[in-house]
Simulated assay, not measured.
Amino acid sequence: MVILRAGLCPGLTAEMIQLLKANSIATVVDLVSSDLEEVARKCCLSYKVEALQRIQVARVFDVYKMLDVLQELRCSVSQQVLSSSGPVKVLVVDSVSAVICPLLGGRQAEGLAIMMQLARELKTLARELSMAVVVTNHVTRDGSSGHLKPALGRSWSFVPSTRVLLESREGTWGQASTRRIASLTKSPRQPTGIEVELDIGSCGVLEESPAASGEGC
């Protein structure tokens, strides 16, 4: 679930985010499911808020449909038929494991092939169209070590160039009962082990810890 934040698309400011949140619109899904004219009226926003109209959502429930959507996106952008909504800057897939996991198990060889096909398509979009591709993936615990690891396993771990682990941790005495932590576990530019504590309510960062030695999951 993608939370609305300033800079998500051109024109979406922090002030606009607060107005939307005051009217129970905090995520991209909330926004695209709403009547934009009604949203503009309630939030006292001009209806020429193009930023809100730039966000598009495609609901897919299997990997084959997702591949179709990605190929259509690549063709439409290359043919410049998205001029009404402007250039695509960010693609968010939430979540990749939801459409891949059903193919793993009994038909594992086929599932791995489809997973790698999806990975190639996402990398092609990022490279050819110069867009950021953000993919969410569930995590599981390693049976021997107990450490968290990506749900799609070792094969998928080589696909993302940058990987961030999002987790909830029990707070210590004097802190909130649950802390939400984002940890950098793979990056071509930054040292791994950097952690920040997130405040989901205000979409901000509470504190940042220095880079730790070694790499997380």
Rank of each mutant, 00 (worst) to 15 (best):
T124K: 06
V77M: 15
T185K: 08
Q108V: 02
C203Q: 13
D199W: 04
C203R: 14
Y64C: 04
L20C: 04
V39C: 06
L129Q: 08
R127F: 01
V81Y: 08
P210C: 06
D199A: 15
C9G: 06
K65T: 15
P150M: 10
K48G: 15
R179K: 09
G193I: 01
A211T: 02
T13P: 05
L91I: 00
R107E: 03
T178V: 15
T124S: 12
T178I: 10
K149P: 01
C101E: 15
T140G: 05
L19K: 15
R74W: 03
L152V: 01
V164C: 00
G105R: 14
L104S: 07
K48F: 07
V99H: 01
R107W: 00
A211H: 05
M115E: 10
L129N: 03
G153W: 09
A212D: 09
C75N: 11
P150C: 04
I3H: 12
F158S: 12
D30R: 07
H147M: 10
R41M: 13
G7M: 12
S76L: 11
H138K: 06
R107S: 09
T124W: 00
V28F: 09
S24W: 03
S157T: 10
N23L: 01
V32H: 02
G106I: 04
T185R: 14
T13S: 15
R154F: 08
A6G: 08
Q79M: 14
A176M: 08
A51E: 14
V69P: 02
L45N: 11
V196T: 13
V77G: 07
L118W: 02
K21R: 13
V57Q: 04
A26L: 05
L73A: 06
Q79Y: 03
C44A: 15
K123D: 03
S76T: 15
A182T: 04
E110I: 08
R41I: 06
V99F: 00
K65E: 14
L12S: 06
G214D: 11
L52C: 11
R107A: 10
V133Y: 00
L122M: 04
Y47D: 14
S187G: 03
A58K: 12
V164E: 00
A26D: 11
R120P: 00
D35G: 14
S168M: 11
I100H: 02
R59D: 15
I194A: 04
S78D: 12
M16H: 04
R5W: 05
